[in-house]
């Protein structure tokens, strides 16, 4: 790794780690199903950035591009299903607090 590349790597890594921390905090600390989904979205974005960085470092940007585009499609479909479930939960419970989803235990 040249000096230029390692400096870029360092800056990128700081941004990615920050995004991971924000996303994880968002999932763990909030009691709102929509916010949990936003937190997941931030986590996936951090992973996407990491894949772009990986493609740049190993010199295979075309491969990284195809992976990222596929990933964006998958992520959107997951979010559509997740928000559908959230909508049903709201219609059933009149609330999007995940603490109210506690009927199943044991």
């Amino acid at each position: 790794m040249s000096a230029d590349l390692s400096q870029l790597f360092g800056h990128f890594m700081i941004a990615i780690i920050l995004l991971f921390i924000i996303g994880a905090y968002c999932i763990l600390a909030s009691f709102n199903m929509v916010r949990i989904l936003i937190g997941l979205e931030i986590l996936i974005k951090a992973a996407t950035l990491l894949i772009i960085l990986a493609g740049y470092i190993c010199g295979r940007t075309a491969l990284a591009q195809t992976i990222v585009i596929t990933l964006i499609v998958i992520e959107i479909v997951v979010m559509v299903v997740a928000s559908g479930v959230t909508l049903w939960a709201f219609r059933n419970n009149e609330s999007i607090d995940p603490r109210k989803l506690s009927e199943l235990k044991g």
Partner: peptide, 26 residues
């Protein structure tokens, strides 16, 4: 809905772990 939501969130977190791993392999 409760079962689906729990499965969905944990599965999405698992996906993030796997994607990060794939980035490191790449």
């Amino acid at each position: 809905i409760e079962g689906t939501f729990k499965y969905l969130i944990l599965s999405a977190v698992a996906s993030v772990f796997m994607l990060t791993a794939i980035a490191f392999f790449l």
